[in-house]
Every structure is written in C-alpha cells, then in structure tokens.
Write a protein that binds this DNA or RNA. Sequence first.
DNA 1: GTCTATACCCCGATAGAC
DNA 2: GTCTATCGGGGTATAGAC
Lengths: 262, 262
Amino acid sequence: MSAIRGVRERARIEVTAAIKDEARKQLAAEGAAKLSLRAVARELGMVSSALYRYFPSRDELLTALIVDAYDSVGEAAEHAHRTATAEGDGRAAAPRPPTASARTVPPTGSARTAPPAVHLNRWVAVACAVRDWALAHPHEYALIYGSPVPGYTAPQATVGPASRVGLTLIAIVVEAHEAQGIALPPLAGELRPEAERLAADLAPGLPPAAAARLVAAWSQLFGLVSFEIFGQFNRVVEDREVFFRQAAAELARTVGLLDGHR
Amino acid sequence: MSAIRGVRERARIEVTAAIKDEARKQLAAEGAAKLSLRAVARELGMVSSALYRYFPSRDELLTALIVDAYDSVGEAAEHAHRTATAEGDGRAAAPRPPTASARTVPPTGSARTAPPAVHLNRWVAVACAVRDWALAHPHEYALIYGSPVPGYTAPQATVGPASRVGLTLIAIVVEAHEAQGIALPPLAGELRPEAERLAADLAPGLPPAAAARLVAAWSQLFGLVSFEIFGQFNRVVEDREVFFRQAAAELARTVGLLDGHR
DNA sequence: GTCTATACCCCGATAGAC
DNA sequence: GTCTATCGGGGTATAGAC
C-alpha cells in the first residue's frame, strides 16, 4: 500500500515537473500572458482536462512558475554568496571559476592592502550571479522582474522566494558593517524617517543611511540587468559584462562597502 | 477636390487617434501581448476588418503605441529639462510647481554657494518627470520598459523616440561639463575601451568615465522607476517620492554633477 | 471605407464515461 | 487519473458586395 502510494506520488511529481518544464518553454515562445494549459497539454500528448488534476487553474500554474523562478535566482545569489565567502577572502585565484562573469574586482595595483575588498567582492559576485542567471533564463527573468501579468495578482506564497536576492545583499552589507564598519555620507534630512523605517524593517543593526542606500542599490542593480535583458542596451553598450561588473562595484561603494584602495 | 481631401484626411486622423486611444485602454486591461484588433473595433462600434484600413496588422498598431509612448515620456523629460533650465537657475521658488514630485533638491544650509546645484537640480527634475509620467501611464511604461512583447520585434522607427530621455540626460551632463567641469573618480582600467567607445558614440566632448557612468545611471534610474511601477517596492518602500528624489540626486552625483555643498 | 461572411485557428473550464 | 465531448467564448486575416 505504502509502496503504491510512493509510486503514485513519484509519478505525480514527475508529471508535475514535466508540465512546468513545458510551460517554461511556452513562456519563452509566447510570454506569460499567453501561457495556455491547452497548449502545454497538447505538447505533452495529454488532453487539456487532465492538467486540471495537477494545477486547478492557469493562474496556479503561473504561480508555480513564478515561485520556481524566484527560488532559482535566489539560490544562484545565495550560492554565489557562499562561494565568495568561502574562497574569496584573500587567496588570489579561485580553483574553479564559478561562471564567466563572476571574477573578482579588478586587480588594481595594491592587491595586498588591508582590509581587502572582501565584502565588495561578495557583492559583485552576487550581482554577477543574478546577471548570469538572467542571461541564462531571460523569460523567467521577464516573468518575475518584467511587466506584471495583466489580470494576475501574485499570492502571498511568492513573497518569501521573492525576497531571497534582496536578503542576500542585505546580509553582505551587515557582514561588512559588523566586520569593519561602513563608510557613508550623510543622508538628506527629508529621507530620515523613511530610512529609519527601512533599517528597522530590513536590518535592525544597520545605520539608516545604509539601509536606504541598500534598497536603492538593489533596485538599481536590477535596472542594469533589465536594460540588458530587455534590449535597451542594444547598439549602446558593447562589452556588457565588463560594464556590468564595473557598475555593480560602484553600487557596492554606494552602500558603504570598501574597495582595496586605502 | 482639395477640400474633400482635407476633410477625408482629417477624418482619417481622428479615427486613427480614436483607435489608438481605445487600444491604450486595452493595454491597461489586458496587456500588450493580448492587444486585439477585434476588441478595439468592437469597442469602437466598428467591424474588425474596417481597422485594417488604418493599421495593416496588429503589430503596426503596437508599433504606433510604442512610438507614442516613447515620445510621450521623452516630451515629458525634455519639458522638465527646459523648465528647470529656464526657471531653476537661482531663484528659490518656482511660480507654479510643475508636478508634485518635481521640487528641487533639499535646501540644505548653504543655499548661496557658487556654483549652485543647477545641473544636479535639472537631473533630478528630469528624473522626477520620468517617474511622474510612469505613475500616470503605468501600462504604457510597461509597454516600453517592461518585458518585450513575445513575437514582436521593434522596427527601426522606434529607436529615435526611444532615445529621447537618454539624450536629455546626456545634455544635462554635457552642460555641466562645459559650464563648470565634472568631478569623477578614475575608472577601472578594464572598462577603458568600452568607456571611450561610449563617449565617442554618445557625447564626444565628455570624459569617458562620465559617459560610462551616465549610461549606468540611466539604466539605474529606470531600475528605480520599474521597481516602483512593477510592485517590487510593495511592503518595502513607503514614502516613494522622497526615496526616489534622494536616489535620483545620488545618481546625479555619480555622473559628476555637483551639489550645493562646497 | 465600411459592411457581411467566411476560413481557420485559439482558449478555459466542466461533465461524465471508463 | 485520463479520456471524449461540449459550452461558450476568443482571435487574425481575407474576399467581395456596396
């Protein structure tokens, strides 16, 4: 009995995965707004009504894809954070370069100054991981960071996964703050209340100026990625990887992370 | 004969405008991917085939909407630039505040230092104009700065209108550079070739570091707007106008524009 | 320039047999 | 859990009369 149950459950998981895979393909071909259960079923050799045993509606399928996408990019960011933390704290060359664009910040002259740019490098590594993920999954990126799907409102289940990248960036700045402090110019008085609220909500230990700039840098980071993925850089930026890494590093300085130059 | 021609042409222009207006409404309700000629015709009391006299295909209608949207936000940006240039160069309060969020940068202490933050104020004014436009036309914003419409590729006719906001930002930095120079930290060596290419392409008079940072700031500006419009700031940023103005001002410093503090 | 009619496609969702 | 069949919509695009 429990063996049968195990078999059935496994089959159910496999079919569910196949449905989501096919749906992702359709996302690429037709976009989220036109995601259709029928087309997915057709491509899978099923009949449309059979899909309703797995997803009670089109929107539920869409939600599953959105959650998966947030988890996927969040996992990429967290993995880059772990890797950069484990290996990047001093030794020059990493054993295996994680991805093409996840190199460290420029080896400019004084590579031996202390404290080195560990936290800035972590920030850049996470930023590059997000960009790499977006380049590898442009349609899933569009699903979560592009125009909202008309007529669809994201349920509560998406907000946890949606916050993983942001939490990773916060963690880096908190680490930097605890390890060596962060250097930031003062904030315009107008923004003080909002900055204090942000700090209290997101990272109680952080100075309000850092929290506010962190949120700005977070959205600006995705501005860089979106412009590249959505084609706004066509005929403008040529060497996009170098451009992105440089811009990400400057964003890191914006939130108070220090580079190696002392 | 020419009178009839005039009447006919006027009627054609009016019907074309009505079609585009209705299409914009549908954009809001259903999204660009599902924009349908039939639905537009139905709403206008016409029959679908009649629309083909005005737009030979759905994609042509979409192109017209995209061009209109780029022109609309571009005009808003250019208008803010003109207004800020005409009135903002010293006198404190403007006669009529252009929009709610287009106030000038904080009146921090020394308001009389020279040179004042004229160029920074122009930058902020243009940034706020873009944001205001986006808040007023979220679906058109999504059309041009959100996910690309699947299966649609923008024709050459869109690139001119698409560049108007960027050109306005470039103009501000060029003005600042010619009037008082701009202050920028050096660029990482890696980025030099790309930065020089960007400067040559976009603003021959500008230092490469400024050109590169300008492009980054341009995309980051839209990152801020997109996160607000697309809902990523929900439950995160509360006072979005103050937050945005502050972030836009810091972006301006990023491209070398000086604030009033001397 | 607008109409009717038409060819030929698509969709979400459900009922009920097996 | 999958099937057929069905309801009740939707769409692009063209032909040809007026």
